[in-house]
Design a protein around this nucleic acid. Structure first.
Lengths: 226, 226
DNA sequence: TGAATAGTGTCTTTCAGACAATATGCC
DNA sequence: GGCATATTGTCTGAAAGACACTATTCA
């Protein structure tokens, strides 16, 4: 069978959605943003925010638009995660979803009350509710990717404010890997990589103030490997 | 806008295809399989094999089916690469393509003459023809992924017969990275990882015969990380 | 001065990389 | 014996990991 003999308009077409797994660090925990479904199927269950891709927009544009519409979040780090296309994953019809993976600094985040009544909430990745569709599988995959990314790239900085202390950075790693690191070795590693530069000191804390760092501009973009 | 208020059948839907980038090592070179297009658009140009996803099959099933239909190749290592969805990537209509990445051992490959007249040929990755659609971009991305995979996983073995010499393995790495490695360091590394075990010796060669190895079963599957 | 967190150095082990001579089988 | 390829070890430098005490600010 040769595809070019077929008129592309003749094929029955699947629906295509994007879903966005948005992670942040909040309350010393790794959080993911979920929305509550208020219609069939999986009514009342929590789901990863997402929606249908429109004909005139790219997948990444669709992901940004949906994230804004559903959660009022903009300006996030965004990358494509994986495409899930099992024919039975959505009971309504054939739906192929392109999952995106997003990171945001919780301090500059305002989850403005949504205009519609839908619940939008942060959940701990270590204590998830029952999820709609195959979303649990997607989240597990996203967590693997997040860990991989932290190990081999500089995405961790996307979870922090522009200026941060090395202890904050270490805490991000500890929360995401769910284990402790040695403080001296951690700092030695980060500083020897030359990723950051000193830009001041903490103020108004009831203990010795920590040095503040920010990411070196030139190195800050070694993020996009895959 | 809340997606659940919409009837999913109301949206205009994009077409979804799978494309399969099949790599092999042949004639001391990294080759990729391409097919010649015989209709508009890009008539006469070479393209990555692929085709439309059917409603009842998964993406991976579609990739396997298309690969078999277009090139008669089965039994390959297959993983999802990336989904390309630019609205203008196909002049016919909106087509989102899920690209797959495949590896095969050229010694057990029979590209049986296709039943249709279409040309199917191996091209050197280092000397590609003009490609249809955004396929050049897709191939570049696939090469990056291939290199990454060789560095961090054991996929290289998918490009070799079951029994192989360390020199053959080293040649695979040299071809794909397009540079030479030190023989002693390379062998030390492979052997110290405990990935392979000795299973005999070459025969009938006009020089000192090399030891043959095969992949240790238990370790052979450290491939599926991403 | 006590509470809280920041900041710092050494030793050991492991791994990567540079580097060249000998061994084996076939003709 | 000559040809062609296979096989092997040492040294050096860099990075990772184990490990515990002192410094600073504020209340």
């Amino acid at each position: 069978m040769v595809k070019e003999k077929y008129d592309v308009t003749k094929f029955e077409r699947p629906s295509v959605t994007v879903d966005i797994i948005l992670f942040t660090i909040k309350d010393n925990d790794l959080k993911v943003l979920l929305v509550k479904r208020n219609v069939w199927p999986f009514k009342g269950m929590w789901a990863i925010p997402g929606g249908f891709v429109r004909m005139e927009e790219s997948l990444e544009e669709a992901a940004k638009r949906e994230l804004k519409e559903e959660t009022n979040v903009t300006d996030v780090y965004l990358e494509q995660l994986y495409t899930f296309g099992d024919p039975k994953r959505d009971p309504r019809t054939r739906v192929i979803t392109v999952a995106y993976f997003a990171l945001v600094d919780s301090t500059k985040l305002k989850l403005k009350a949504s205009t519609d009544v839908r619940d939008v909430k942060w959940f701990s990745m270590y204590n998830l509710p029952k999820l709609a569709f195959d979303h649990e599988k997607i989240l597990k995959y996203a967590l693997k990717r997040l860990r991989w990314k932290l190990e081999y790239t500089t995405v961790a900085f996307k979870l922090l404010p522009e200026k941060f202390t090395l202890s904050q950075l270490q805490r991000v790693y500890e929360i995401i890997f769910n284990k402790k690191f040695d403080k001296r070795n951690f700092r030695k590693k980060i500083l020897s990589l030359g990723l950051v530069k000193e830009v001041g000191k903490e103020k108004g804390v009831a203990h010795r103030p920590a040095k503040l760092y920010k990411l070196n501009k030139k190195i800050g973009e070694i993020v996009e490997i895959f």
